[in-house]
Nucleic acid binder design. Structure first.
Lengths: 339, 339
DNA sequence: CTGAAAGCGCTTACAG
DNA sequence: CTGAAAGCGCTTACAG
């Protein structure tokens, strides 16, 4: 059973396919097409269960109504929730989403951008990896609409939507200090990504503002490869009695998840032996015993804003030079892991 | 800067675009095109950074090299991991993935299938919702390749890849019984889905095999709407002293996550006050204190098998009537929540 | 008010 | 060995 095309309808009705196309696209009125014939067309289309071939439509129109979402790893809870929110917002505008994971690898990111550009996606939402300037610049040069999310590239003027990483961390660390945890360790991933740099800076400035010194020794930057082992080691080192640390701040969800496992393995109790706060919130943190104090990013808002900016740029063809840059507040959720 | 097309290359070289197309598709040899001209074409293509318009190619070829993944909710950890695994396997075959969430709503599923068919996806991987027979049958009737995943529809002969829900549950419940928990409760979602029915049956048969009776009273089927409240209530009811239950089995990840929160809220200790086992494994379960005993589905394998079956069917155009049906073993991971 | 034609960018069977 | 042509299914400017 072949799918019915515009031509099938036109032939059966003895009219041209132009007319059918016009009617079905709701342009009958403005082209002064007769009511009677319009109705006939619409009825037959329904009867034959006509579904326009979007591929042909896209080719003709030069747009596919598909956007690409490129994140580090869609199976990571943070990005999975982003994926869902992007899907829902895109759906409101009639757009579909192709998703891809870069694994924080700039080469893979570049390759994905190429392949997806060939496929004529109308635009991109991207969590840029390190060293991805070249690929993002190419996108910009080629006038392909895109929005960065979660992180931005300070050297390039682009649209972006990110959380207020600096202030969130600053305030959370301050909270710890005020609870009396003067010696708070900080575990992060070794990265030049804007979000991670800002979180680290927030920690440092909070410590400094409290007149503390020597906190550089309480920072561990884990390598992205060998991630889990790195976190385990960092936890063990920092919690060595000699350091006398009573609190730890985890700079991301993945770090927090692994670090809490490490703490459990060391048979240390939270918060009695060590208080903890994590950047990013997740269901798992609510279900921990005790539940983990966390900084929740507004994932839904972040995602929907990104989609709106993107689709707006896609629709008004010629891309403006002014860019939309949004920094969103986070929510500090106090639970029992730090009190 | 317009993208370079086949024509641009042909014109600059003074040859026909047929020739260019043939060369670029590696069919120069079999069409006896000269080496010299071939090289020229390839070089110029590279120089102009030629990227074929996949939309045009798809229209011509009648295939898009895109597949659709429809699950209940891509932000759910189980499906997010499935998404990632599907992406990776599809990538190996040069396919991209569009993802969509049905929210377990058959109407939404039907709508998604329609829209994505219009967009000429080459095939579907679907976690069917309840009452979705009609939509799946339509897919079948229209000869559109698809594979069901995680659940199947007993009334329809289709490709599917699922876990061995019945035996996994049977064995896990048996394990509890052997540990001495004669009165084990079972919390599931009220659903006619094959996977949920099989899990319930596994529980019942395990209880029966142990000569137990009256276990019907220890089963709670929560409504999909009002989910969290339903689970909370089920936990509270079952753990009423009058029931004297010392163990609970959770039939899915979402149930387990919520139920453990409820148990924490009741200030009951795991496993001293109540032992628990959950279907599905997740990072959160490892990080719980104590870690949760769980049945891990082989998500990666399940996903890659589904993709392989699908792409195989897409490639050998005429769809065979015999279908591939795979039931995969699960892994029972014993942690401290039940011992 | 309606139809014929061009064209989006590609591939492939056909002719020479 | 290579080119001209048809056609995938659509939309839209143009002609009448």
């Amino acid at each position: 059973m072949k799918k019915t095309s515009l031509n099938d309808i036109a032939n059966k009705l003895g009219v041209s396919k132009s007319l059918v196309s016009l009617v079905l696209n709701g342009k009958a009125k403005q082209n002064r097409i007769g009511d009677e014939i319009s109705k006939k067309v619409i009825n037959l289309a329904q009867e034959l269960n006509y579904q326009p071939n979007q591929m042909a439509r896209s080719l003709r129109l030069g747009r596919s109504e598909t956007i690409a979402l490129i994140v580090a790893d869609i199976s990571n809870s943070f990005f999975a929730r982003m994926g869902r929110a992007v899907e829902d917002e895109a759906d409101k505008h009639g757009f579909k989403v192709i998703f891809s994971s870069s694994d924080e690898n700039p080469d893979k990111l570049g390759e994905l951008i190429n392949v997806l550009t060939d496929r004529q996606v109308d635009g991109f939402i991207i969590s840029p990896t390190i060293n991805s300037n070249e690929h993002i610049l190419k996108l910009k040069k080629n006038n392909i609409p895109f929005v960065l999310i979660d992180r931005y590239l300070p050297q390039i003027k682009t649209n972006y939507v990110v959380a207020d990483n600096y202030n969130s961390t600053y305030k959370a660390v301050k909270f710890m200090l005020e609870k009396g945890y003067k010696k708070t360790g900080f575990i992060t991933v070794s990265s030049a990504l804007s979000n991670m740099k800002e979180r680290l800076q927030g920690y440092k400035d909070a410590m400094k503002s409290y007149g503390l010194r020597g906190y550089g020794n309480y920072v561990r930057e884990v390598d992205y490869k060998n991630f889990n082992e790195g976190v385990d080691e960092a936890v063990k080192e920092l919690l060595l009695p000699i350091n006398n640390l009573r609190a730890l701040f985890f700079a991301s969800l993945r770090i927090g998840m692994e670090a809490i496992k490490s703490i459990n393995d060391l048979n240390l109790r939270i918060p009695q032996d060590v208080a903890v706060i994590s950047f990013d919130d997740t269901d798992a943190y609510k279900l921990c015993y005790p539940p983990i104090t966390a900084i929740a990013q507004p994932i839904n808002l972040m995602s929907s804003e990104a989609v709106k900016i993107l689709i707006n740029e896609i629709k008004k063809k010629n891309i403006k030079t002014e860019k939309t840059q949004i920094v969103l507040e986070t929510e500090f959720i106090i639970r029992e892991s730090c009190c």
